[in-house]
Design a protein around this nucleic acid. Structure first.
Lengths: 116, 116
DNA sequence: TCAACACCTGAACAGGTCTTCAGATGAAGT
DNA sequence: ACTTCATCTGAAGACCTGTTCAGGTGTTGA
């Protein structure tokens, strides 16, 4: 039973270390929400559409292929999670990606998906 | 109206380019599902727990603080999306992160969240 | 073979998500 | 002031997700 006991001790140590590796709940929640926002095909399309140039709501709707209302709803959540930012010019509102991280996340995500 | 027409043409060109920047639907679906799997606090905790060492289901349940059944269900979806892989040893099953990308994604995600 | 253990699975329920619809807001031009 | 245009918003409904519960598989050691 010596080996089994030893293994148990090792496991307990690893489990303890693993527990400490988990961040605080605020970070976890923010991280989860960020990925959740990226975890939707419509919003991903919007991200790709905005990758090169800023676009207004109507154009996004046309490119992505859904109603302007749906786009507006999605942009609001993307704005809240700081995936996109916007710029107003008269009655138009131009949206663009918020920062580089979004681009990085998507690029790495693609690398993961395209492997194998 | 000259300027307005010009702007419209510019916008149409940008919109057209934006449409081409959107990947095929298989890539989009895979990408979306990958992010969706990461978009859950429980699964993120599991990722952090597995970041250093492989762990068995019971230990993960203890560290994360949910039932073994819930862990098992989550691990299955994480396995399907290649977030984790496993190794059997007798009646134990040890789980670990599948590849480096997962670690990268989480690290960049944290950087995004912790900014501002 | 039997019991104990580690893990897996299907069904079901609560809670959340995404789109649509109808209408509201606000800016620009007449 | 009125109309048009671009965008936003709340409510509602269909759909999806994550956990629990109860029971299943398969391995180990007596």
């Amino acid at each position: 039973m010596e080996q089994s006991t030893m293994t148990t001790v090792l496991r307990r140590e690893r489990a303890e270390a693993a527990g400490k590796a988990i961040p605080d709940s605020d970070t976890l929640r923010g991280l989860g929400e960020t990925f959740k926002v990226l975890g939707d095909v419509t919003r991903l399309k919007i991200c790709f559409a905005l990758a090169r140039h800023e676009l207004c709501v109507g154009d996004i709707a046309g490119v992505v292929g859904i109603s302007e209302s749906a786009v507006s709803h999605q942009l609001r959540t993307m704005k809240t999670m700081r995936l996109v930012k916007y710029r107003r010019e008269g009655k138009m509102t131009y949206y663009m990606l918020d920062d580089v991280h979004i681009d990085d996340l998507i690029r790495i995500g693609i690398r993961h998906v395209s492997e194998r």
